[in-house]
Amino acid sequence: MSMLTHLNRRGEASMVDVTDKAVTERSARAESLICMSTEAFVQLCEGQNKKGDVLATARIAGIQAAKKTAELIPLCHPLALTKVQVDFELDRERCGVRVTSLCKLAGRTGVEMEALTAASVAALTIYDMCKAMDPAMEILHTRLAEKLGGKRGLWRRSEAEVAAGNQAPNQEEGDW
C-alpha cells in the first residue's frame, strides 16, 4: 500500500526484506569536513594534542562505527562488511580535516549508511580530541560521495548534481 520502503501495510516502521535480492558487490564512499581554529589545527598537524594521536584514534573510531551502524540506525540491516577504510586530508587553507570513508561488501543491501556513519564518527572523534583547544569547531558537509552496486549501479555525487542542474563542487580545489 505504501510507496515508502520502511513502512508496512499498516504504516508501521518495518525493516525492508532483502531476502530475494541478488548478492552483488557493493561499496560506498562518504566524506565529512571538520574546521577548527589555526591553533588547534597546528597542534593536530604537529602531533601535539594532549589526548594523543588524533587521526589514528579517529580512524579506529570510524571503522568501529561502520561496523555498528545497525545498532545506531534503527532500520539498517546488520552487514558483514569486508572492508572499511577511513582516510584524512589536511586542508591548511581552511584549517580543516577532510574525512573520507569507504565501505565494501558482497551482499543484498547497500553500505551507504555505514560509510556515512564512519565519516561522521571519525569527524566527531576529531572534535572530541581537539575540543579543549577549540570548542567552536564545525563539522560540515557530511555526505555520500559515491555508491556502487544494486539496481542503480554506479552513482557519483558530481554526476547527480550536474543531472539535477546543481553546480557540482570542485573537490580538486577543495571547494565544498
Rank of each mutant, 00 (worst) to 15 (best):
S2N: 15
S2R: 10
M3Y: 13
R9A: 15
R10P: 15
G11E: 09
E12A: 04
A13K: 02
V16D: 11
V18S: 04
D20K: 06
D20V: 05
D20A: 12
K21A: 11
V23Q: 07
T24Y: 00
T24A: 05
S27P: 08
E31Q: 09
E31I: 05
S32F: 01
S32T: 14
L33A: 07
L33C: 08
L33F: 11
I34C: 05
C35H: 12
T38G: 14
E39Q: 13
A40W: 01
A40H: 05
F41H: 05
F41T: 09
Q43T: 13
Q43K: 10
L44G: 10
E46S: 08
N49T: 13
K50F: 09
A56I: 02
T57S: 06
A58P: 08
I60V: 15
K68R: 14
K68C: 14
L72I: 10
L75F: 01
L75I: 04
C76W: 01
H77W: 01
H77T: 06
L81C: 06
T82A: 08
V84L: 01
V84I: 06
Q85Y: 07
D87N: 08
D87G: 07
F88K: 05
L90S: 08
L90W: 01
R94I: 05
V97I: 07
V97R: 01
R98M: 11
T100V: 07
L102I: 05
A106N: 15
T109D: 07
G110L: 01
E112N: 04
E114K: 02
A118V: 02
A119R: 03
S120K: 04
S120F: 03
S120C: 08
A123C: 05
D128M: 00
M129A: 04
M129H: 04
C130E: 11
M133L: 15
D134P: 08
P135W: 00
A136R: 10
E138T: 14
E138H: 14
I139P: 10
H141G: 15
T142Y: 08
T142H: 05
R143M: 04
R143H: 12
L144M: 06
K151E: 13
R152I: 14
R152V: 15
G153R: 00
G153H: 04
W155V: 09
E159M: 05
E159I: 01
A160I: 07
N166M: 13
Q167K: 12
